[in-house]
Write a protein that binds this DNA or RNA. Structure first.
Lengths: 105, 105
DNA sequence: GCCACAGTATCGGAGTCCGATATCGGCTGT
DNA sequence: ACAGCCGATATCGGACTCCGATACTGTGGC
């Protein structure tokens, strides 16, 4: 259970950036969304991850109230989008290296 | 420096399994091979990683002597190959999720 | 025996993962 | 307005990983 798990941790960050770059997202929603894709993680992992991403300047957050619920919504910063591009590039590269060819063109 | 770095850690494990499933490999060679692909990691990370993979039953090692040099060569076990397949599947899935479409889905 | 060298192993501080649990903010009923 | 509720977020502590630098091991040459 070595490689896959680590890949999931990375995938989670990518997903967060991916969604946060398209629309504001909040923790609980991300949690569901990730679960929907088969990535389950506890709040004790998700929230520190969001904080870290914000601390690193990849996300910005803001408290909003939706339907009487106070949420912290996150959106990607330019640096966050750059990191996303970088991540995508890395995924593509990795795919090209370890996936059996079935090329483009 | 959040997402890309974690992806690299995962990529390294995949590369190790990938190569170890094709031919016996040893630490120093993997180090070079990974560097060639742009993944640089220190011995302090690589060797514990190999040990962990072996402890988890994904690799088996054996001491051999090559040109008067004693090396520990690793090969993938069936479980290791299974983990590799699993990892490939995860990469494919991840690619399909965060990469801009241009294939099927 | 002793040195040189490729290759491998270990140390210790910093950071991360995780589930369980606590906290918060705003609503609802009375 | 107060108490209580609930979704959402935050925190805690133990175990594990990362990392560079450094030490160690075994082999051949002198």
């Amino acid at each position: 259970m070595a490689g896959v798990h680590e890949l999931q941790r990375a995938a989670i960050v990518l997903h967060v950036l991916h969604h946060a770059s398209e629309e504001p997202v909040h923790g609980a929603w991300m949690s569901e969304e990730l679960a929907r894709h088969g990535y389950s993680l506890s709040p004790g992992t998700l929230y520190p991850t969001l904080h870290r991403l914000e601390r690193d300047g990849l996300l910005v957050s803001e408290q909003v109230v939706v339907e009487g619920r106070s949420r912290r919504v996150y959106r990607a910063t330019p640096a966050g989008e750059a990191a996303l591009q970088e991540g995508r590039r890395a995924v593509r590269e990795l795919a090209g290296e370890v996936l059996p060819k079935d090329g483009r063109s």
